[in-house]
Design a protein around this nucleic acid. Structure first.
Lengths: 112, 112
DNA sequence: ACACTATACCTAGCAGTTCAAGGTATTCGA
DNA sequence: TCGAATACCTTGAACTGCTAGGTATAGTGT
């Protein structure tokens, strides 16, 4: 059946979104800039990445949304659910694991 | 014509390969196990990942290979070239950058 | 009044990367 | 002698994330 596991290093956009939403509710457009800021400009994810992730997280119950009209414009604020907080924990663990693994490999003294 | 940049978090298999080969010459099958070991079992890349990367690195001049017969079996040993060492440096910098960015985002005190 | 930028939402389609699953051949241990 | 381990390899597909669009409203400068 050729059932493929997700690539070993994926889900980072999801992790960052959940992490920021754990600190405060935010809307999509805001998250785009917040991710850039929170990572010290190291990571810049476009709207084409953010919105689809937001939608799939809401579909699976990790987020819930609330539309809010602000001076004529509509914003969709997202907040974490219990399931989302759980998901965040798992992704954080996964990340630390692979991050630590790579750190190990890199820390070994160089041959030169 | 829809020219896409590589995903912001790719090239880790390549990084690990180059890093290990910087320590000592190795052959493909050996690298598969070395990566598992060096990362403390955190990352496990199959032969289907390793061999293609090895070949493309050789094609672009980052590695050179040397066939060696060992008790009837043929092993292909790879070693870093100058270009490969340069490539390793760049990938290491890239990695530290994005790794640091994510660390920043995660280190901010949690809302809970 | 008009244009231009920023805000704010969204989707389709593709490109690049990694993965699973095979295939070949030799050697070694039970 | 039969299976597991060694050692090489490729194909095809899955998955993620990127580019490039699209809509609409509000603010700013001229």
């Amino acid at each position: 059946m050729a059932q493929s596991n997700p690539p070993f290093m994926s889900g980072v956009p999801e992790l960052l979104l959940l992490r920021l939403l754990d600190q405060s509710d935010m809307y999509g457009y805001e998250l785009v800039r917040s991710i850039r800021a929170a990572t010290g400009e190291a990571i810049s994810l476009g709207e084409g990445v953010i919105y689809p992730v937001l939608h799939s997280l809401e579909r699976n119950g990790s987020l819930k949304s609330k539309r809010k009209a602000v001076s004529g414009r509509t914003r969709v604020y997202y907040s974490l659910t219990g399931k989302g907080r759980q998901r965040l924990g798992k992704l954080q663990d996964d990340w630390r694991r692979i991050q630590g693994g790579i750190a190990n490999a890199l820390e070994v003294p160089s041959h030169a």
